[in-house]
Amino acid sequence: MGSSSGQYDLSFKILLIGDSGVGKSSLLVSFISDSVEDLAPTIGVDFKIKQFTVGGKRLKLTIWDTAGQERFRTLTSSYYRGAQGIILVYDVTRRETFTNLLEIWAKEIDLYSTNQDCVKMLVGNKVDKDTERFVSREEGIDLAKELKCLFLECSARTRENVHQCFEELALKIMEVPSLLEEGSTVVKRNILKQKPEKQVGPTQGCCS
């Protein structure tokens, strides 16, 4: 899980969703490494881990980048489980990626998210292509209100607002007590978990 486990105070799971091609993987890569490269469409899912400090806390974010392709959708449902934050991404130059958020992705969240308190964030990507813009900032704000989301516009290409996006989300998660608790128990729970398993261990061996 990386050499630096234990070097953080809180650990959260973040999920990126949205139509294919809106730039989820690009956003993630742009946040993780400083490079801006063109990536193949995600097959199923990818994830990256990023550690950084915000609000005086050392955070470990495990960010799951799902495929927007419909073919993989039944499988992506499992990645919603236990996510403390969900980022809904659309492409400001493609209107249907925006309308699909309400028609498809918000419903997926309702269906699969196991965490009632989980923090949602709406992100309009590709603002660098301003001349081709089809979704206005105001529309974005309105949808964010409707879905009870945080809202940001950014560009994976110019890396504008990319860091803010993840940081704001993390800060907001830390404001929710139940999520904060989940984030901080992850480390402890792993130790606790061992116990019952050890007890059960031997019997399982002889009976199966």
Binding site: I43, G44, V45, F47, T74, L75, S78
Partner: peptide, 30 residues
């Protein structure tokens, strides 16, 4: 597409987290 119960999903996630090299990972099933 394959159907899975939550323990199967969990197993898969776990395997991914353990095996996945965070820079070039993609789900085998997908």
């Amino acid at each position: 597409p394959p159907i899975m119960t939550e323990d199967m999903h969990e197993e898969r996630l776990h395997a991914v987290e353990v095996l996945g090299d965070s820079f070039s990972f993609s789900g085998q099933l997908e």
